[in-house]
Amino acid sequence: MAMLPILSRFQYDAHILAVEVDTDFTMDQVAAACAEHCINHHVKDQPGKRLRVRRTTEDDSAEPLPPEMTVAEAGLQMYDCLDIYFEG
């Protein structure tokens, strides 16, 4: 277990945030940690929709990471950028 700063590219926000996550966090927990800094701060909540996490790519085409996959299992490194986006 160790804290790791990842970059949160949260759907609809203007800024990319540095968010510390635990290497044991699942992707759902990563999404929740990022949402805490964005939803109702700079991003409107979308009740009923689920937050998903994927690696940031040039064409936004990466598949979402499994919700139960941990940060360590995903092999995330310091300053890896993740898209946090609404699904559904």
């Binding site: 590219r9 759907q11 609809y12 203007a14 800024h15 990319i16 700079h42 940031t56 950028c81």
Partner: peptide, 17 residues
């Protein structure tokens, strides 16, 4: 400067690394 770009539905924020 904070890495930023247009917010909202166009969602242009992007980091270059």
């Amino acid at each position: 400067f904070p890495i930023s770009n247009r917010p909202g539905p166009v969602w242009k924020a992007r980091v270059h690394q």
